[in-house]
Design a binder for these strands. Sequence first.
DNA 1: ATCATACTACGATGATAGCCGAAGTGTTGT
DNA 2: ACAACACTTCGGCTATCATCGTAGTATGAT
Lengths: 230, 230
Amino acid sequence: MIEGPYIAEAAALIGDPARANMLSALMDGRALTATELAHVAGVTPQTASGHLAKLREANMLVVERQGRHRYFRLAGPEIAQAIEAISVVAQHGAPRYRPTGPRDEAMRFARTCYDHLAGQVAVTIVERFLDLGYLTEAEEDFEINDRGAAALEEFGIEVTALRGKRRAFARRCLDWSERRAHLGGALGAAFLSRCETQGWLQTKNGSRSVTVTTAGRAGLAETFGIDLPQ
Amino acid sequence: MIEGPYIAEAAALIGDPARANMLSALMDGRALTATELAHVAGVTPQTASGHLAKLREANMLVVERQGRHRYFRLAGPEIAQAIEAISVVAQHGAPRYRPTGPRDEAMRFARTCYDHLAGQVAVTIVERFLDLGYLTEAEEDFEINDRGAAALEEFGIEVTALRGKRRAFARRCLDWSERRAHLGGALGAAFLSRCETQGWLQTKNGSRSVTVTTAGRAGLAETFGIDLPQ
DNA sequence: ATCATACTACGATGATAGCCGAAGTGTTGT
DNA sequence: ACAACACTTCGGCTATCATCGTAGTATGAT
């Protein structure tokens, strides 16, 4: 049992979007640099630095220095447990009549969420994959079948190798602007990375905004039959 | 998995002291009225009303109307689980160099925490009881022995009856201003209530501040050997 | 030694959200 | 019907805090 204001202090630290994004990005046990966390949070490095200092001070993060790099990771499993517990609560939250998500229309269309694609484009892709029967929905994950794996392997993603990773494979990740799931986990990250390699999607350095190129629109249409709205 | 800003939204709702106090007061499954929750939170009824509306909107609280009274309770066990998870994190937080707790010296001396006593007085009482051997400390609770139970029964608290309640009996409650445990649970609430009946402590209507009367200083000294600083 | 990169510190700015006073609506008791 | 009480709504105020630009320190590569 603990007096209320203690709870408020800890919750308020999590209750900032930039910090929440950082903590969530570290949920799978990875250690990320301050610059990576700044990108994940969508803020400048100096802002991220201040946030990280607060999280360290509160014993939510620990830092390891490697030369010029500072690697941050969660201080213990209880942090991840608290984030998970809050996630459950957050998913039971009320449908909002005002749209959630960023006000910037470009960010709503396509942006990064941690290291995978989010926004309208991401959700459209997922729904197409569901239509094609590549993916099915389980409780917290997507399941990919042989047809889907083959299609993505052909696209250049090493699906089998991804499954061997410690990281969750294909996570359903509730999208902030669409309120439906986009593809997270290792598969989601690999898909975004591959699209970047193909020149279909472009991420601007320092920003979480994602641009779909002309080649990307064509490629997504030809390869997966995905028609993106203008 | 859930996009970070969702987590931030839910956490931010918990991250306000008034709301955290309200949610915590409802942790044991009780339903409290809006006015009781306003008192618990230490804010006016109109402020509490706004907070309660937000918590309802977020599906953290449900309300039942009984005539003029609105009874609020937690919407489900996942809320309590999230509060508990955050509590664990909060207890691992860094010692702060600036003093925690309210700035008002009177509130630091003695105040209510939910329905039991908090502040310097409360912690002094607990430590005296530990010295006397009435209480011992366990993980999350205090244990009271026969000598302690007899002494409190003599003081007018029906210890045996309290043990039969559904509510936790004698909780260690981490005090916000003292950073040590004061006595929570049913026993803590009964002790405060008894001290009020005795005229030893006075709570002002609508405030969480507690006044130790002259009779209270004398009574605490004679009955339990507790010397309070001026 | 110089330059690039990673990270931190400082100060000013502006948005936000909690606060309460005033006032209103709804329910209960006399 | 009236008064008391429970609760909600509205508007103004203010403290807080996240933000970024500027500038600095530390590390690594050439």
